[in-house]
């Protein structure tokens, strides 16, 4: 079976003056895969993610996202991906339904599709009573689940999740991963960052970035064997401890 490649980067690099935030990263992500993108603070994850989403122009190197070129086809990239982060997800002062319709509209769904999809989504999430309430009034866990569902409403090829589970309670955190699995089963590729190392175990493959470079990339089980440890936490610690880059030049 040939795996369909949905993210392909070749020596992708971003410089800010003398500072190389992301240094020649080369990797592939396959369709329907859950790919964990790990790294210490300041390792270059956010910079890399911005390039992959078509929001930041690389300094050098190449990449295609969902088959589109990262330099020339950024608009097509944006239409074929979903994005959600802990910091920015939904508009607090719009209602649940308004948020679904707003984001669905931005992602290019027709009025007819939107109506059908928003009703479906509200049913699936059990938010019938809350659909006309402001998002601000929802508990954080519900907001995060709604934000994820909105980010995949247009059935994108890839969804980028930037620390989606930060701060939520342990049960919601697990329910959130159930949603991730459901999306992956539908063929949506998941590209996720997290500081919870148990969540790294739920990924098919993970990469660990140190000082702008991808230092390790494999399935969790292979990485644990490679570093002769019993947990991903230790693998991460072994690699991230080597980081030399602290403050200089940034």
């Amino acid at each position: 079976m040939i795996k369909e490649v949905v993210i392909k980067t070749d020596k992708l690099t971003k410089r800010f003056g003398d500072f190389i935030a992301t240094n020649e990263i080369t990797f592939e992500v396959y369709a329907g895969e859950i790919f964990g993108f790990l790294g210490a603070n300041g390792a270059g994850k956010t910079t890399a993610m911005k390039m992959l989403c078509g929001l930041s122009r690389p300094s050098s190197g190449n990449a295609t996202i969902a088959g589109f070129d990262i330099y020339k086809q950024t608009e097509q990239i944006k239409r074929n991906i979903g994005y959600m982060s802990q910091k920015f997800s939904l508009y607090e002062d719009l209602t649940v339904l308004e948020n679904i319709q707003f984001f669905g509209g931005i992602y290019g769904l027709s009025d007819k599709q939107l109506k059908k999809k928003s009703n479906e989504l509200i049913d699936i999430l059990g938010l019938q009573k809350e659909s006309k309430k402001l998002v601000a009034s929802l508990p954080l866990g519900w907001k995060q689940k709604l934000a994820f569902s909105v980010a995949v409403l247009h059935e994108p090829k890839i969804v980028f999740l930037d620390e989606p589970t930060g701060g939520v309670d342990p049960i919601i955190r697990r329910q959130f991963w159930d949603l991730i699995y459901q999306a992956a089963d539908k063929g949506i590729t998941i590209f996720v960052t997290t500081h919870y190392m148990d969540e790294a175990e739920y990924c098919n493959r993970i990469s660990i970035m140190v000082d702008g470079v991808i230092e390790a990339l494999d399935s969790p089980i292979n990485l644990k064997q490679q570093f002769t440890t019993s947990t991903i936490d230790e693998v991460f610690y072994k690699l991230a401890r080597r980081a030399k880059r602290t403050e200089n030049l940034k």
Partner: peptide, 10 residues
């Protein structure tokens, strides 16, 4: 330590 990586948290 919210949003801080494992090494800095330690």
């Amino acid at each position: 330590t919210t949003g801080v990586d494992v090494v800095s948290r330690k």
